[in-house]
Write a protein that binds this DNA or RNA. Structure first.
Lengths: 346, 346
DNA sequence: TCGTTTTTCTAGAACGATCTAGTAGAACGA
DNA sequence: TCGTTCTACTAGATCGTTCTAGAAAAACGA
């Protein structure tokens, strides 16, 4: 916009009040078509690009954007096919409502003061994607009174969320593994604290992130007699699954099945097996969660959740005022592929 | 934020001027530590969540966000691994600068008036991802005087861009194909207009999108004697490659090689071959551009470009004021895999 | 013809911050 | 002691809109 050209400039040039120019853009039925035409063309001549975004947002209270908050680093979101699928669904709905998507990074360093992105974000609402309850970004959004929809179930009846029944989902897989005779399981867990270090074995209490905990409980429920160990090779990524599984496979005490709490972790485990000449489903069973596109290619047994639908549903709850149901449970389905097979008898 | 609580409220409660409260958040060295502490804690008590994003953006002229503009539908961006890789790189740098990423949809319907996302976007700068020169969103951003960095080379010396030498990249592939004896090529082209209809054969003029045109010219350069036909099955996606290739393979007049102008198109073509019992690299050569992760798995010959670096570089040029070089050419590399082989002699 | 409704436009106050310019007092140096 | 610099804070204008309330003119109904 030619510098210094504002609504007022245009108004003066046309000889009308600023309100009328504003109406020309926002409420075309409030003025005669002829005048509107005249205003718009004068605006064009002057190089006026339409009402300033920030000023409009300030005065009207609508930013025309919804925020998205992730765990960990923002860049990870794009290396995780599950997150990408979610975003695709969310973007679809955002598009429908002519609303932008604001992806907010939050390096824990700059929480103090007003210089962090969550603080600065001009948004009307926010999608909370797989973020643990204690995340500092959550506190900021809560303090800002910004409506939120989470991908995790919350206890409170006022919360909005779109989620799956994590326990049930995991129970489906647990039942499958139990039937196949598995009684010695390693679960690969997402754990940011373990990143960059050696893989670590952890207790259920240490897992922290509620979803993971629920999935583990679901497995335990259907496999009460099994030994279930928890191992983490870092944050939720292929490489962590690889590292974690390498550690497990090279140990003296191999399980008969490895369960990744997400497909990327499980795919990493398959890679580790391949490198050791082990065949998934024969030598060792591998299974995951989510059913990302690559899971099918790799023949990974997994618990499918409709991730794109999840994104769409979150978008609807965020943006469509006519949506009544603000707590939505999506279905899951066990998808059995070649990576799971009977436990070797000994 | 507790409704009605503003800077002013806090200022009154503490007994200082609004400016001082503002400084407590933005310029900590402008006031005594003790007072700042007092202000911050009073703010917390009152439920004040920090300076309002829109108001701050309006007054200071900084939004703390950069926009990203895509071709076509926003949701497509997430189904394209190339776009996802770009975003990952961009997000990395955005994170570094505590800046959010605003993904702007632009349905062509609501260009008129002030209700479209590009118009409403509160951003300091914008990344233009593979957008043709005539895109309406571009015009709006230009009118708004928003600094832009494009992933396409522009002619004008003032433009900022991070790109590859498209002609040279394609020439590398062309040389490879020529050496293998291919003289009858079909190029799968991204074309939004062809979407949803039958695949169409088109002329170079109809392609429109500059990058595509340049790649085709690069191929022609090294294969002056070859017959090169252009076919589109729709927009840039796996399914379009599949559909386009099916049409080509089922025609009377099969080429000896199919070149996708992106890897997703080429991967679609490989799928079409597989379904017909044809082996890429033996029965027919397939090649692509970009070298997305799936290309390696599939054994696709392609021209690699460092897509994540592209995202990073765009981020730097957008956000780092110390970056001098605003026109960056990234290297490309021919990656030969199993999908390309000698042309059958006849 | 006259009152009523509708259309079209406007004045002026917000919205909630940050910026510029400046003041009062403390600290300093000689 | 006095001028100077520094620190800590403030008054008031300003960013560019949209909103509320209302006025003037036009159209309408009887």
């Amino acid at each position: 916009m030619a510098p210094g050209v504002t609504l007022k400039t245009v108004a003066q040039a046309v000889g009308v009040s600023p309100s009328t120019v504003s109406n020309a853009y926002n409420k075309p039925d409030q003025l005669s078509a002829a005048l509107r035409e005249r205003i718009l063309s004068t605006a064009q001549e002057l190089g006026y690009a339409g009402p300033d975004a920030s000023a409009r947002a300030l005065r009207s209270g609508k930013a025309g954007a919804v925020g998205v908050l992730f765990t960990d680093k923002l860049a990870y979101a794009f290396s995780d096919p599950y997150a990408v699928g979610f975003l695709a669904g969310l973007a679809e709905v955002a598009e429908e409502f002519a609303t932008s998507l604001l992806l907010m990074p939050l390096s824990s360093t700059d929480i103090q003061g007003g210089t962090n992105a969550v603080q600065q974000a001009a948004i009307d609402a926010a999608a909370i994607f797989c973020v643990a309850g204690a995340h500092p970004g959550l506190d900021i959004l809560r303090a800002r009174n910004i409506p939120m929809v989470s991908t995790d179930r919350g206890d409170h009846p006022d919360l909005s969320w779109v989620a799956i029944d994590e326990v049930e989902a995991a129970a489906k897989l647990g039942k499958h593994l139990a039937r196949l005779g598995h009684r010695d399981i390693v679960v690969l867990v997402d754990n940011a604290k373990a990143a960059g270090t050696q893989p670590v074995e952890m207790t259920l209490d240490e897992v922290g992130y509620t979803d993971c905990e629920l999935r583990i409980r679901g497995l335990q429920k259907e496999m009460p007699d099994a030994r279930i160990r928890l191992v983490s090779g870092g944050h939720n990524a292929f490489s962590s699954g690889l590292i974690g599984a390498e550690w497990v496979l090279d140990s003296q005490d191999r399980p008969t099945a490895i369960v990744g709490l997400s497909d990327v972790l499980a795919l990493g485990a398959m890679e580790a097996m391949k490198a050791r000449g082990l065949v998934p489903g024969r030598d060792l069973t591998v299974a995951g969660f989510d059913d990302i596109p690559q899971a099918e290619t790799a023949g990974l047994t997994t618990v499918r959740q409709p991730i794109k639908d999840k994104g769409r549903a979150v978008g609807r709850v965020l943006l469509d005022p006519s949506v009544e149901d603000r707590q939505i449970l999506l279905p899951t389905e066990l998808v059995v592929r070649a990576s799971s097979g009977p436990a070797p008898r000994n």
